[in-house]
Nucleic acid binder design. Sequence first.
DNA 1: CATTAATGATACTATTTTAGTATCATTAAT
DNA 2: ATTAATGATACTAAAATAGTATCATTAATG
Lengths: 135, 135
Amino acid sequence: MKFISRDTDYTMRALVFMASSSKKGAKHVITVDEIVDELGLPKIFMRRTLQKLARHKILSSYKGKEGGFSLLKSASQISLVDIIKIFQGNIDLTNCLLRGKVCPEVKKCPLRKRLKKIGQSLNKELNKITVASLL
Amino acid sequence: MKFISRDTDYTMRALVFMASSSKKGAKHVITVDEIVDELGLPKIFMRRTLQKLARHKILSSYKGKEGGFSLLKSASQISLVDIIKIFQGNIDLTNCLLRGKVCPEVKKCPLRKRLKKIGQSLNKELNKITVASLL
DNA sequence: CATTAATGATACTATTTTAGTATCATTAAT
DNA sequence: ATTAATGATACTAAAATAGTATCATTAATG
């Protein structure tokens, strides 16, 4: 079962690269070309995912010549769950299990409660995996 | 993000139903028709999933008139992870994240270690959710 | 022993999601 | 004005999911 999609995967790599190169004191604004050249990822795909991060206020974007992307949030404030949520939606284990007749009382269902709890601790753990922690 | 597929979902419901009706002292062999009539699920779909469980030695199957399916493993020995594994594969969070240049040393990668650990505890928790615990 | 009622196996179709491409518009530096 | 970047959006291809159809096999039973 696949848990991480390409968007999430590629984007995490791009973020780690951006964070590490801005840490080195190099310029903060990085173009998509630089990222995909370094990481060997498909350019147009990467463009779209980074644009989405910009809309979500995780990156700043600069149009025009000498433009590109830079981190808006700090590397320690960007976690794996944030990225998963953006590209794959909330991590919700209770999705669609035992609806219907077996478990008519959704609110009271003990299974849902357990799954919810498990999902919460999963979220919590994944939240600790920040870009900064991967440098 | 969807975690549970239809196969897993429907199958868990069927198992709970089978376990509860055999507990009541009713006959142990149940036909697909009885299950889908009770749960309102698509019959041919259900047939395929139950056949698969039979191949995986979770159910016994009986061909011919008066045939059907019965639990081979006991309800307390069938867990949600078992079913997920059969229909959706192993629950492996490390799948495809940060391969390639960012993380060339797969064995040593600290992220993979962390994800592996998180995945293990997730498995452990889901393993506690047995059919018996849902009756 | 023919009939009937069940599963076994497998191939097929439709829908949705994921992965990736193409293109034109907009913007800013020089 | 030119150039080099992102913004937005529409499109295509591949894979996974959901569900159907069908014929073969088997066992009970009148």
